[in-house]
Design a protein around this nucleic acid. Sequence first.
DNA 1: GGCAGTCAAGTACGC
DNA 2: GCGTACTTGACTGCC
Length: 303
Amino acid sequence: MRIGYPCINRSIGCTASGTFRLASYTEERLKETVKRNLSCLEKILQYNCEHAMLFFRITSDLVPFASHPICTFPWQIHFAKEFRTLGEYIRQHGFRISMHPDQFVLLNAPDEGVFHRSIADLVYQVKVLDLMGLDTTAKVQIHVGGLYGDKPLSMDRFSEKYALLDPVIKNRLVIENDERLYTIEDCLALHERTGIPVIADSFHHALHNNGERFVDLLEPIRATWKTHDGIPMVDYSSQEPGKRVGAHAEHIVPEEFRQFLLETRQADFDIMLEIKDKEKSALAALGIAHDDSRLITRKNADA
DNA sequence: GGCAGTCAAGTACGC
DNA sequence: GCGTACTTGACTGCC
């Protein structure tokens, strides 16, 4: 078990998500921004290494507009060396890496344009992981997509579109349950039809489910991850008090997290803490999990 | 320097 | 049918 947080580190004073307005796009601007982002990503990984946080989600903004037609600059070639160096660092220290395209990536969209733009974005995200030389345990997680007024049909369309994907994308893609439309059970059903691994979000599951307990789904979920996929990834969060139902917490709730570790103790997986104060909660989580036998520490990861 | 409006992309839903 | 929420940080223009 590794523990980590997504995309942003609030402690180190830089961001790997720097971007700019489409209207101010220039090749120069892109180069400067990507250079800064990659340099900051290196700092974030160093910070994570020092604190034994070995799971990290890389921001989709690492290369702004990478999948937009305006971006014709060969960033893959220009920054190949930087990506390779980052990848070496990641492998050397035993990090697990994920990426998460945002809501606009919809494989099951009936609109062909939306579908093709989604493919373009997946190509970009997979390319980032490939340039780093990471194996297929590094994943790109997406949601099933929209309902489009007919859920069974929209699930059929997901399977059909998934079948069309390049193996390079398929090897990295995993599907996640969401809080309103598709449950873990829906994702498991899609796994049966496509072979795609299922990444569970425990918080989304609490808000939208088919009556099953989260712990009872861990074994069926684990079975969707093959050896080359690595152990399952799990997204974890809790409710921010007083906010809309589904709003992610500002801080980890230690007692809740301790209970989560206890309930799931028979399963092994990597935990992504989707909590707003990022590395701060991840540090707290590591403290809570320090005597959990599943936890991979920096020492045994380096060894 | 600080603030508020806005940002590539889509869908669901209420009116 | 249309506007807004969703979710989010950060860019950008304006004061």
